[in-house]
C-alpha cells in the first residue's frame, strides 16, 4: 500500500513520517514516532487509554486515521512535564493523591484531565466524574483520580490568581 507523508507537531516539536493511509494515529504515534505514553486498551474508542490532545480537543487517537491528523498540533502526556523536567501540576497531584496503580490508564487520564480543566477550570466532583467518563481505569475505582483532579483545579486556579 502506498504511503502518505505525515507532518505533525507533537509536544511542541515538528515531526514527520511515512504511513499507510489506514494507519491509526495511535499506531503512528507509538510505533513510528516512538511516543509510547498513550496506550492501547481497546482500539474501539471505549477505554480512553490512547487519549491525546489534538488541536485543543481531547481525542481518542485510536479513532483517528493518521491522515486526518495531517498538520495537527498534538500534546501527549510526555508533553505535560514542566520545562525543567519536573512533573506538571496534574501529574504531581496524581502522584500525591494516589490516582494511579498500574499506570496503564494514567497517560490518557492525565491528558484528558489537562483538557478538561481548561474546559471547566472550577469543576464540582460530579462534573469531574462526568467529564472524565470517557477514560476507563480498572485499578483505582476513580476516587483518588477525582481527588487529584480537584486538587489540580484548586492549585491551577490559585496560581492563575497569583499571576493576575
Amino acid at each position: 500500500m502506498s504511503k502518505m507523508h505525515i507532518t505533525l507537531t507533537v509536544n511542541g516539536t515538528a515531526v514527520e513520517g511515512l504511513a499507510e493511509p489506514r494507519t491509526l494515529l495511535i499506531h503512528f504515534l507509538r510505533e513510528t514516532l516512538r511516543i509510547t505514553g498513550p496506550h492501547i486498551g481497546c482500539e474501539t474508542s471505549h477505554c480512553g487509554a490512547c487519549t491525546i490532545d489534538m488541536n485543543g480537543k481531547s481525542v481518542k487517537s485510536c479513532t483517528v486515521f493518521v491522515g486526518q491528523a495531517q498538520g495537527a498540533e498534538i500534546t501527549t502526556v510526555e508533553g505535560l512535564v514542566n520545562a525543567d523536567g519536573s512533573l506538571g501540576v496534574i501529574q504531581e497531584n496524581f502522584r500525591e493523591h494516589h490516582g494511579l496503580q498500574c499506570g496503564f490508564c494514567t497517560p490518557g487520564m492525565i491528558t484528558r484531565a489537562h483538557r478538561f480543566l481548561q474546559e471547566n477550570p472550577a469543576p464540582t466532583e460530579a462534573e469531574v466524574r462526568f467529564g472524565m467518563a470517557g477514560n476507563l481505569c480498572r485499578c483505582t475505582g476513580y476516587q483518588n483520580i477525582v481527588k487529584a483532579i480537584l486538587a489540580s483545579a484548586a492549585q491551577l486556579n490559585a496560581a492563575k490568581e497569583a499571576a493576575e
Binding site: 505514553g37 512533573l87 502522584r95 499506570g103 494514567t106 497517560p107
Partner: peptide
C-alpha cells in the same frame, strides 16, 4: 509513603510489553 513508581507512570515513561521494540 508516596509511590516511587508514579514518577515514571505519570509522564508516560512506563515500559509495558507493547512499548518494547
Amino acid at each position: 509513603r508516596k509511590r516511587v513508581e508514579d514518577v515514571r507512570f505519570t509522564q508516560g515513561k512506563g515500559n509495558y510489553v507493547d512499548d518494547i521494540r
